[in-house]
């Protein structure tokens, strides 16, 4: 039995170190996903870091591309590249761009302009299904991101085509740059929307490992595309960042960094 909580803590420490070294980056929305990424990259996903082009691998698309640090840490820690590279985040000539890019080993596609990942996931899933492979596609969406209309074109397409190999994770941290999602332009009732678009769904605590694992298990058995509606805390694990919109994209100074690392021991 893997200690996912310990892996998630390592990922959180990486996120803080990376963003501190870069002098910019998105800590809040990366920290909220650490537990989910620990379960995906160290358990749920069928992938092999030593074979980048292995055709039968599961695919993960980080549609909320600004959470690149959580993806990079998960990739490095699962063996796609040496974790020493993480401190080069956002630096000129690094293969770790501010938002995901194809040049990073393990990144499937570039993302960063919100609302585009689920469509890409649909394109992957529709022919995995047609070819009857057992491959799965995971798309990680932000809650604020769901304000982008293209998502709903994709939800509709996936529901219509019964893409049951497609799992969307909605990182429901209720924060976007300008404030609470529920105040800026609410996406609720999200579960009803999933139902109306012919998706199955499960609402979980996105920091509870058992619930995360169970949701992905149910996604595997679903006859429809499956949404994991993961209630999370933006900035989770670093007390002064938790539920604070300003930590969406604020750089960390030395004091911020030291305080965070102490809490993540």
């Amino acid at each position: 039995m893997k200690d996912y909580a310990e892996i998630a803590k390592t990922i959180r420490r990486d996120i803080i170190e990376m963003i501190f070294a870069a002098g910019s980056g998105h800590a809040g929305g990366s920290l909220s996903l650490a537990d989910i990424f620990a379960v995906l990259y160290f358990g749920e996903m069928n992938h092999d870091p030593s074979r980048l082009q292995w055709e039968e691998r599961d695919r993960l698309i980080l549609s909320k591309g600004h959470a690149a640090p959580v993806l990079y840490s998960a990739l490095a820690r699962s063996g796609y590249f040496d974790p020493d590279n993480l401190k080069t985040l956002r630096k000129t000539d690094s293969f770790l761009e501010g938002h995901p890019a194809m040049k990073t080993p393990g990144v499937e596609v570039g993302t960063g302009s919100l609302g585009q990942g689920l469509s890409i996931g649909c394109g992957l899933a529709v022919y995995f299904k047609k070819r009857q492979t057992s491959q799965r596609v995971f798309v990680i969406l932000g809650d604020g991101e769901l304000q982008e209309g293209q998502n709903w074109e994709a939800f509709m397409f996936a529901g219509h085509n019964k893409l049951n190999n497609l799992t969307a994770v909605i990182d429901l941290n209720d924060l976007q740059i300008d404030g609470n999602v529920s105040e800026v332009n609410t996406i609720e009732p999200i579960a009803d929307k999933m139902k109306a678009f012919n998706w199955n769904y499960e609402a979980i605590d996105g920091h509870n490992i058992d619930q995360i694992q169970n949701a992905f298990k149910n996604a595997r058995l679903s006859e429809k595309p499956f949404a994991v509606i993961a209630k999370t805390v933006k900035g989770r694990g670093v007390s002064y960042m938790e539920n604070r919109a300003e930590w969406h994209g604020k750089p960390l100074n030395k004091e911020d960094h030291d305080k965070a690392m102490k809490e993540l021991l």
Partner: peptide
Amino acid sequence: FIDVGIAEQNLIGIAAGLSLNGH
């Protein structure tokens, strides 16, 4: 052949996904 309906943004995204698995 795939007809995605009247949804051009999704159309491009689906094409992108297809290209990523060798289509």
